[in-house]
Amino acid sequence: MTGGKVVIYVILNMLMIFLLFTAFFAVFTKNLLNSIITLAIFSAILIVIFVILQAPDAALAEAVIGAGLTLTFFVITINKTKDWQNE
């Protein structure tokens, strides 16, 4: 492997670890809004991973649908169900 590839490999693995962290945080945090925002970050990391894995189409789709629309939907839901503070 050439140098550039090694770097990308390392970055990929680090992103994977990050992905796990964000997922765990999104699941185990008490605050729903935090959870949703973490989910957005989760999607963002996923997009980067897709790009690294040479899948631009999927990355774009994930960006607009996974990160964009779904996040909006979640936010609307949380707004409509006001008692998200107390679990």
Binding site: P56, D57, A59, L60, A61, V64, I65, G68, L69, T72
Partner: peptide, 25 residues
Amino acid sequence: NLIFFGHISPGGGFVGGVILAMIPI
């Protein structure tokens, strides 16, 4: 752009459609 260049570059109907949906949103 995304829609019409879908067969040439990344993108396509789905992505372009979502971007268009962003406008009314």
